[in-house]
Design a protein around this nucleic acid. Structure first.
Lengths: 132, 132
DNA sequence: TTAAATATAGTAATCGTTATCGTTATTGAT
DNA sequence: ATCAATAACGATAACGATTACTATATTTAA
């Protein structure tokens, strides 16, 4: 099961690299389709999974019903807007110590975590002010 | 749209209270069915959502494909076992300050977060040792 | 006790994702 | 360059979790 090159996979990865948001499979599909009209949704899913498994991208399950994909595999946190649903990067002071903090009171092996912050994003806050 | 009492909702809530794990809708359904054989899956879903909306229970989207429900609405964190998929409570030192830490470098309004720790639970660790 | 409103069971529909399958593309060896 | 193997493709069906629909039953306040 050696991995072979595919143009489709290259295009999908390239598209992801250029986005600062964290698109869902469907968004990747509709966009990649513009340059590559007969790519199939299954191919998009298969490659997003493959890229995640290879550690070249990150799959985010933010809890809004569909998976989001992040080309940045560095450990970092995310913010989810309750209004528009956008998923944004959230750079912050290092809190990697929380795994140890958690381990203190837990009788299993902790090897990682995911944090999702929720609230209203800058864009929605501004729109809110305009409508008042 | 006032909320009316329903025996089904009471039974669902009661069942949840008695569980220390965090069952999915389907688990709630198959169990509640034993005492209440003709309850419908739709009713279980509707009431779990309703109870979440009313703030009487918590919906957890841990990223394993189905929602889990927690009768404990207090703010606390969770652990997800990579092996058996169990979702466990994880009591730990207060880290509620992370919302402020996150806010420092973010230009939106943060009003909460969810943290999921991942790893191998105690039960699976023990089973692992037995098989060696 | 009755009428309005809400909840139910049963079932169909929807949505995101995964699996299947016959065809096409990549790759390493000739 | 040609070939055979094998991985990837596009199209579409299947799947699992959740939501929507509808006719009937239950709750509730007057």
């Amino acid at each position: 099961m050696a991995i072979k090159y595919s143009k489709q996979r290259a295009v999908i990865k390239e598209f992801l690299q250029d986005r600062k948001d964290h698109p869902t499979a469907d968004v990747v599909y509709t966009n990649v389709r513009k340059a590559y009209p007969n790519i199939s949704l299954g191919t998009v899913y298969r490659n997003l999974m493959l890229l995640s498994d290879m550690g070249e991208i990150q799959r985010l399950r933010v809890g809004d019903g569909s998976d989001h994909f992040d080309p940045n595999t560095r450990e970092h946190n995310h913010f989810v807007c309750r209004q528009c649903g956008d998923v944004l990067d959230l750079e912050m002071d290092d809190i990697s110590g929380i795994d140890q903090t958690a381990a203190k009171s837990f009788r299993g092996k902790i090897d990682g975590h995911r944090i999702y912050f929720y609230g209203i994003c800058e864009k929605c806050l501004q729109a809110e002010q305009q409508n008042q």
